[in-house]
Amino acid sequence: MINTMLKRTNYKWKDMQFDLSWSEQVSSHELIRPFKGDLPKQNIMSYVSQPASEVSSCALYENVYLGTGALEEPGKEPIPTVKQTIATQNQFISLQKWQGIVVEVKKDAFIAKLIDLTERGVEEEAEFSIEEVSDDDKELVMPGSVFYWNIGHQISYQGQQTRASMIRFRRLPVWRKEEIDAAKSRAQKLRDFINWK
């Protein structure tokens, strides 16, 4: 939600991170000023109290919430104070992206078919070392598993740029008995209808 707010006021999230990291203290007026006119004061709390997925968003929420007086009190301005925080979010600029399907698993490697998502239509096959997969994803490496492979630049919050290759396996839900039964039932009807016998 905070991201939405920043987008609406043409603020860039990266800029805000920078501001928050290097400001000793930001007054409530300065923090809220960009949104004035867009938002009634009473709504500010509802925006910042939404669950935020990013660490920086949580830090902002905590700092604003803890340092802010009750908005409901008539005639009083909220006085949020923001402590110095260290933004931990990096940016990733993708130069090349594939979707992969594992076709064969060896002792210390796996072979996958790759569909180029950057230049559609090109199909490739590659052999990866298991070491390229994060420990959390290693258990997912089996024939039929789907993953995404990204090559690009990782830019830290300090602006440091590094070349990076990221492999992330897709965690699909498990088959449920109801789904399997529904498929069987539909298959039976279809088989009868088209005379697949």
Binding site: E124, I151, R163, S165
Partner: peptide, 23 residues
Amino acid sequence: VKRRSGIVDKTIKETVRNIKQLY
């Protein structure tokens, strides 16, 4: 092997044991 930009080709070589274009 399909040719891409220098940065991408370099990273591909560093990441995979081998890669080939199908068809």
